[in-house]
Design a binder for these strands. Structure first.
Lengths: 201, 201
DNA sequence: TAAGGAACTTAAACTAGTTTAACTATCTTT
DNA sequence: AAAGATAGTTAAACTAGTTTAAGTTCCTTA
C-alpha cells in the first residue's frame, strides 16, 4: 500500500539522520521504528500552541515550519524555521512539562515523525547511543544559536539579511519576506528598504 | 598541604554539579578526578584567543569570565559570562578542531577545572552518564540562548536591560556596565541613558 | 603617592529602524 | 469568477540607538 511506503521512506530518512552521527545498529533501528510515529500537518496547522505542554520532539520529513512567540502587541517573532531533516520542539516545555510560550506552525504542508517524551526517555535510558546522538544534535543547534546571537548584537539589519541569504539560500524561495523579517528582528517594511538598497548596488 | 585541599574542594564542586543531573558512582567520580585538572587564571588572562583551537572544556570553580568576539572595527561583543558552576568553551572550535573566532577572558581572578578534548571523548565512550549529563547541560544552555534570541528580536534595549537585572542580579555588581552593554548589544553610552531613565521612574 | 587608564555620565548631531498609511499585486477560497 | 486575505513596496514622520567629544571619578599599578 502506498501509505505504508511513505512511512517506510520517512523512517529511512530519520535513521539516515541518526547515522550521520553514530550509526544505529539493528536493534536501535527497530526501536526507532517502533517509537516514532508519522503525522501529516496541513499548511497553517500547529504542532504546538501557547499554553500547551510540548509533548513531542519532531523530526521534519517534508514541508516547513516556523517556531515563534507572540508579544504583548500581538506581533509574531520567529525563533527558528525547520525544514526536511531538522528537529524541532520547545525544549523548555518538553523537558520541564511547563506550558509553552511558543507556537510551531506549518508554513507549507508537512510530514513529521514525532516521539513522545516518555519514549524518548526510554531510548535515553536503554541505549547509550541516543543520549550521544541527541547530545550532538543539540550541540550543533547551540552553535547555530550562538552565531545568531553574535550577529544580533554586533551586526546591522542589512548585514544580518545578507548573512541569512548566504546561510539559508534554500529558505529564501520558500518563505515570504515578512517571515524572514520577523526572524531577523526587523519590520517587513524595513526589510523592503534593505532589499532595495542591496539590489541597487 | 593547602593547595591540595583547594583542589579537593574544586573537584567536589564539580562532582556536585554533575550530581544535580544524574549522580556519578564511585568509579565515575574517580575518572573525573583523574581527567579534570585545575588551572589558576589571573584577571585579564585568556583561556582562549582568536585563532587558537579551543582545546579544553572549562568548569568555573571561582571568578568570572567573558566570552566575546572582536569585529572589524575592533569592538568587543560579549556572547556570555561564566561564573562559579558554569561551563564554558567555544564548541565550534572544540569539536571541529577549527581556529576559534572567540576570546575567553577572566574579568576576575579565577580558578577553573579543565578537561582536554581526548579525555572528554574517553568519558563519552566509556561511561553512558557523561553523554547524558553533558546533553542535559547543553540543553539548558540552549534554552537560555533561545530566550536571549527571542529578547534580542522582540524587545527594546530598556526591556532587555531590565530582564538582565532580573535574571542575573548577582552579575550586576560584579561586572562593569560597559561589559553588560556589550552583552545586550548596545553602546555603554546608551545603557547610561537607559539606566537614568529607569532610575527616574 | 602620582599618574595613567578604565568606567560612567552627559549632550549634541546623526543614522538605523519603526510606525502609519496608502497602493498594487498575488494567492486562496468559495 | 469574484472577493477577501496575504504579500510587497513606497514614503513621510517619528523614535531608538549611535557617534563623537568632553568632563569626572575611581581604580590600578609604577
Amino acid at each position: 500500500m502506498e501509505q505504508q511506503q511513505h512511512i517506510a521512506q520517512a523512517l529511512e530518512m530519520l535513521i539516515n539522520n541518526f547515522n550521520q552521527y553514530f550509526p544505529l545498529n539493528t536493534k536501535e533501528c527497530e526501536e526507532v521504528k517502533r517509537v516514532f510515529t508519522p503525522r501529516i500537518v496541513k499548511r497553517k496547522a500547529y504542532l504546538l500552541q501557547e499554553g500547551e505542554v510540548c509533548q513531542h520532539y519532531y523530526f521534519v520529513v517534508s514541508g516547513c515550519f516556523k517556531m515563534f512567540a507572540i508579544d504583548a502587541d500581538f506581533k509574531e517573532h520567529n525563533l527558528q524555521f525547520a525544514i526536511e531533516n531538522d528537529w524541532v520542539a520547545d525544549f523548555q516545555s518538553f523537558y520541564d512539562k511547563t506550558p509553552s510560550k511558543l507556537y510551531i506552525e506549518a508554513v507549507e504542508p508537512a510530514i513529521v515523525l514525532q516521539i513522545a517524551h516518555a519514549d524518548l526517555l526510554y531510548l535515553y535510558i536503554n541505549y547509550h547511543k541516543f543520549d550521544r546522538n541527541f547530545r550532538i544534535i543539540i550541540e550543533r543547534k547551540f552553535i547555530d544559536y550562538q552565531n545568531r546571537i553574535l550577529q544580533n548584537i554586533s551586526s546591522t539589519a542589512e548585514e544580518r539579511y545578507i548573512a541569512f541569504q548566504k546561510q539559508y539560500p534554500h529558505l529564501l524561495n520558500r518563505l515570504p519576506n515578512t517571515q524572514i523579517a520577523s526572524y531577523l528582528g526587523i519590520t517587513s517594511e524595513f526589510l523592503s528598504k534593505v532589499r532595495k538598497k542591496i539590489s541597487s548596488k
